[in-house]
Amino acid sequence: MEPLRRRKQIAVVAGAIFFVVLVPARNRAFGQTPPHFYNVDKETRIEGTVEDILMEPRYEARAPFLVVILEEKDTRRRISVEVSPAWFFKEDIHKGERIKVVGSLYGSGEGIVNLIAREVQCRGRTITVRDKRGFPTWSGGRRIRGGQGNGA
């Protein structure tokens, strides 16, 4: 009976994990982050120091994105900046470096503010990753169309 109880316990835990972790993730419709889009009404400019540089999957069936964790200069807030697909961003960014970002805020949680970048300024250079309405520069022009993405 002991192994049977143990198997039941494992099944319950697995079920709990499925409902707690995977189902909400599915409900987020493949988004590895909470639903987010470039909201032009929430555009802001921040300046901070690079704390960490990450590569994270952000959109369904898309290459991992470069995500920079910043500590804002004035407020000391921690901000997660979604820059662009890692392959697209050719500039070197190092920890401890001070950068400026123009982007759209899309929510916060766990002590961190999220931002989708439109322009990144580092070492005197400005790298534009989206146009003023948030169209991703890496998606190319009219002849290059992205596949089906799901932002929600």
């Binding site: 889009f37 989708i116 309405r133 948030g134 991703p136 169309r145 799901n150 932002g151």
Partner: peptide, 18 residues
């Protein structure tokens, strides 16, 4: 407020209240 959305381009939804 955007309740649900989809886009062919990553994060591109140029809706603005203005």
């Amino acid at each position: 407020d955007v309740v649900d959305w989809t886009s062919r381009f990553e994060g591109y939804l140029p809706f603005s209240r203005q």
